[in-house]
Design a protein around this nucleic acid. Structure first.
Lengths: 223, 223
DNA sequence: TGCCTTATTGGAACGACGTTCCATTCATGT
DNA sequence: ACATGAATGGAACGTCGTTCCAATAAGGCA
């Protein structure tokens, strides 16, 4: 164990999984998903790409570790003094805000449902579903329904970030899509044409919360 | 227009977007997402990769076209003689089955929510939500809730396909994950530990349908 | 019929990526 | 001091999406 303590300080400014993940998050936040390469990472850490592989198995492990670090900040600080329903809403909104602040997480979460970060969300939601008084046989289904909804939105949000990153501002691009929707065939796409007007002005966060509430309302009908 | 007709037959066995998309789907179905490269596509079509770019802008357009072709088969044959609730269930199950049969579509749908294939699903669900008698202001939110859930599951299913493709059979791998879940810290992960046992034996399709029903139940509370 | 024009083709080449490899460095226990 | 092994850094490999361009082949036109 003395060996272990020494091992972490063998060199000043030693490389470590923590420092690598930290640098990865900085790159991802600053320049998006596409900017995270082992070359860019090595440059930022002033080392070679080979050295990184001594601490991290591959890129997917690195991304999973980066996502887990940010999701952990959500689930460990959860409050339990609120009613379950409110805890779920707060947790879901927390995930939304993390994705909003770090859009690359959206892609990462929806890409691999078995990473630890997703497990944290599953536990956070599941415990509250249980506390909600949902019968045990359907707790799993109810929880994964909420989780799937969250991950679905995560993916959409990440795609949005990729899209809006390219130059023009959000309102203009959404307006362009709304225009396209309005010019669709009225016979084949009546609904899409109708909601096109709401697209540029709708609030993602509000819409997300509405979805969570809808599922919660559904869960309460079987409680 | 004569020119146009001739253009399509200028050469025998001429390359076309249709033939390219068809070949892409064959590769994707046979060997999965990772197998679709322009080199593999060119080899199957007995041409060069450069020629493909004459008919298709880039890989994302190709994937979107492939996904759209399979989703179109679902939404165009939709029945309207059933109650809206049943049409939504049937449509959702249709999407599930397409993803089940072609797991690469799951990744593609969740990666880009603005592709035409997703628009088709949005229209299919939205029209029925409308028919369900949902008040107009919340039709958009209700529809995107269902859509997000479907896309979330799509992403998870695609990840599952990637995972299960690697060697071992599904039951064994799920059992291994369940084992890992059961060995988690009982204080931090009580819920996950409890549902671990259900993991290897649960039916994805049934769980998916349960989620759809949950959201539908929630929608009916605001109808 | 023979040329000319242009859409289309096929494959070489480019730059970037994840990953592997390995000679080198450096703190440590002897 | 010196041998050991963890850790490093950068070259090199194979593959990918994409670009580029010389070669081709099928009309229209003389």
């Amino acid at each position: 164990m003395a060996t272990l303590t020494q091992r972490t300080e063998r060199r000043a400014n030693a490389l470590s999984k923590e420092r690598i993940v930290e640098a990865a998050i900085e790159i991802l936040d600053a320049d998006g998903e596409g900017a995270l390469t082992f070359r860019a990472l090595a440059a930022r850490l002033k080392t070679g790409s080979g050295a990184i592989y001594w601490h991290v198995a591959d890129k997917s492990e690195l991304l999973a570790a980066a996502a887990d670090q940010l999701v952990a900040g959500l689930t460990t600080g959860a409050k339990t003094d609120l009613p379950p329903r409110e805890v779920i809403r707060a947790l879901a909104l927390g995930v939304f805000d993390v994705i909003d602040a770090h859009p690359w997480i959206g892609g990462q979460l929806s890409r691999d449902p078995w990473q630890h970060a997703v497990l944290r969300i599953l536990e956070g939601v599941g415990a509250q579903v249980q506390a909600l008084g949902v019968p045990r046989p359907i707790q799993f289904n109810a929880t994964t329904a909420i989780l799937s909804f969250i991950l679905g939105l995560a993916g959409q949000y990440a795609a949005g970030a990729r899209f809006f990153a390219s130059g023009s501002d959000r309102a203009t691009l959404l307006g362009a899509i709304a225009d396209k929707w309005e010019r669709l065939d009225p016979v084949a796409y009546p609904f899409v044409r109708q909601v096109a007007a709401q697209l540029p002005e709708h609030d993602d966060r509000e819409q997300f919360l509405a979805g969570v509430d809808l599922i919660l309302a559904g869960i309460e009908t079987v409680r």
